[in-house]
Design a protein around this nucleic acid. Structure first.
Lengths: 131, 131
DNA sequence: CAGTATCCTGGGGGATACTG
DNA sequence: CAGTATCCCCCAGGATACTG
């Protein structure tokens, strides 16, 4: 995808208790929290899906972006990809154990946000009014 | 920030069990999972911080991006902002209850990724080798 | 069906300078 | 200290077309 890797030996002082000394997880986090990565992970919690099923399930995603998002997540080991040789071809994507552990808190966070949508709206309007 | 709002009345069929019918949380999710939003939320779990403390705590962030990230998260109600009138000025940011509930799973996910960093690296190299 | 290939644009985001 | 203002670049990502 890039080849430049860029592990970013960032060694932060501490980052408030989290203490993530060396951080190769950073790039992965970027993939996970990428525009479409979030939705792919959440969507696949319901079970493995095929390419076009995912596309149809995730509103607004283009095939190009879905494709590259999937590739990145497979590379990170969060997703598996299975090709069934046939015509027409049949390709299935699903969460690996690593992906399950990642998707779970993500889904939890999304649910939290969704459940508090009304509060959020209110706060936003307040903020905009009182600019 | 934009004024265009764009609530995206997306009404997806289901998105695998999550069933997030209407989704104003989407924009918020974008803010949360934005390049720097993640790190701000995680950093503030350790307690409230001042602007420059945050800047120093989050490697690579520019003041411009930190500023706009903070503004967005305050607007969403995930952060509070307190100004202590003085010279020099003193401004503090912290997690609201809403922010705590958001940052918790986020932090959990990050920890999971960090704990599995070695597996991830291995999978990536495997992937790259086997093109 | 499951993708690539190609072209193109908007705005995310860095660098720098300035202000209350 | 805590930001804004300005300039500008780059690439994430959309549209469209094509292939095994």
């Amino acid at each position: 995808m890039d080849g430049g890797e860029q592990v970013m030996a960032w060694a932060p002082p501490s980052v408030s208790g989290a203490s993530h000394a060396n951080c190769p997880a950073r790039k992965v986090l970027d993939n996970v929290t990428s525009r479409w990565g979030v939705w792919v992970l959440i969507a696949l919690r319901g079970g493995a899906m095929r390419f076009h099923e995912l596309r149809d399930e995730i509103p607004g995603v283009s095939e190009k972006m879905l494709s590259s998002t999937l590739r990145a997540l497979v590379r990170d080991g969060l997703l598996w990809r299975e090709v069934e040789p046939a015509t027409p071809p049949k390709v299935t994507y699903g969460l690996t154990p690593l992906g399950v552990g990642t998707a779970a808190p993500l889904s939890e966070m999304f649910a939290w946000l969704r459940d508090n949508a009304l509060d959020i709206r209110a706060t936003q309007e307040e903020y905009d009014k009182a600019g």
